[in-house]
Design a protein around this nucleic acid. Sequence first.
DNA 1: AGTAGAGTTTCGTTGAACAATCCTGCAAGG
DNA 2: CCTTGCAGGATTGTTCAACGAAACTCTACT
Lengths: 239, 239
Amino acid sequence: MATTDDPAWLRTVADEVRQLDRSSTSERVADVLRRRITEGDLRPGTRLSEEQLVAVLRVSRNTLREAFRLLTHEGLLVHLLHRGVFVPELDEADRVDLYRLRRTIECDVLRSLQGKLDAVRLRPLHDDVAAGESAAARGDWVAVGTANMRFHQHLVALAGSRRTDEVTARLLAELRLVFHAVASPQRLHEPYVRRNRALLDLLVAGDAEGAAKELGEYLHDSEAELLDAVRSRHASGAR
Amino acid sequence: MATTDDPAWLRTVADEVRQLDRSSTSERVADVLRRRITEGDLRPGTRLSEEQLVAVLRVSRNTLREAFRLLTHEGLLVHLLHRGVFVPELDEADRVDLYRLRRTIECDVLRSLQGKLDAVRLRPLHDDVAAGESAAARGDWVAVGTANMRFHQHLVALAGSRRTDEVTARLLAELRLVFHAVASPQRLHEPYVRRNRALLDLLVAGDAEGAAKELGEYLHDSEAELLDAVRSRHASGAR
DNA sequence: AGTAGAGTTTCGTTGAACAATCCTGCAAGG
DNA sequence: CCTTGCAGGATTGTTCAACGAAACTCTACT
């Protein structure tokens, strides 16, 4: 019975098929809107009109509403009864909340990694750091931000926990919402190109505990920087 | 301008209104199904037929599907394209995954609580422990399980983090799914009536660090117990 | 035995319709 | 001048009926 061997590649094939199957109309609509939101084309506070989107996307209202529901549960939209869906405006409490959970999860992942480090598993992290450095060199700070997010997603993936990955994906998506509310992406992302590299070096050296400690300070600094950036933007009169 | 003062009670009023607004049809349908699933009336593996439920619940298919979507994102249903929605069957990998994230979050909450303990904030925990002891005394092990879940939810709530609360709610809901897959609820829940009380005592004494340590062992034991219970059930030939 | 195909069932999506709610602007009153 | 009350229009919430598409089942064939 050669079909029951279940070698590694069979699982990956199954995953790929699942990716293809994932193409229900509402999920594809959600993909489009998700990109628009995370890329910053739809700014926080914007209302998404059903009528308007139905006309543009060429889907029925029911399908669109199902896409709304998907994004709402990812935290990328908020739904107000009889008033419609909006791109959420996160306040300072939300921002510290995001960082709190982020620090909990990411640091715990690194701490639980004691000795389980493997060269090939760090490959995605190498790629992300390189992508960040390359983007920084050409001054594309939005791309730096994207590479940074991917770095942290891959960092968490080292734990091999499906639910942790999902929670992290949601956290990082919401975080991008906040990033779009600040003026200078450079100030926000540039320092972490270097720190990501340092973090990765610690992991390569097998010092998971040291990496966890460094990540704790890293996120602490990042939070302070973000809060400060948003505050100064508000103070300068921008809405 | 007396209306812009924004005193404390205005915020609570806003919250109450939001609670009232929550009564859309799809959410009420979701409430009904959620109860059925968490109480164990709908066993893992069951398929929920749209046609059938539409007839029973007297709602339209679209509304029912929106309720499905809600529960899917809570982890209480899984959606397979063109095949329908099912009560998920969690495997052993899921079970250890659940406990991994649970341990991360709950322990971190306690650790971050250093010195911030307040008598009134522990009130819900007292109530839950009492409810568990009372239910145990009369042998109602399902009620013990419910009180136990509420205890942990309230424990996490001490951190005051909205997102942490949400993640925990999802985790505990999924956990109940697993509980229904074992034969003896007593063996699963009884030991923790006492341990919840011990945990609460540590918190009352202000020993957050000690409580975090105890909780770590607590969850470790609970996980081992659960895995063992499910394994023995499978070994005994039950499906 | 294993496979190919037709038929049945169920889901995915659409479009239209009506009810309920919200928002806007204007008029009346303090 | 500001607040309050009341249309009217605009938008969302919910339902219904229908058709195409995918998955499952069972039979018949090689």
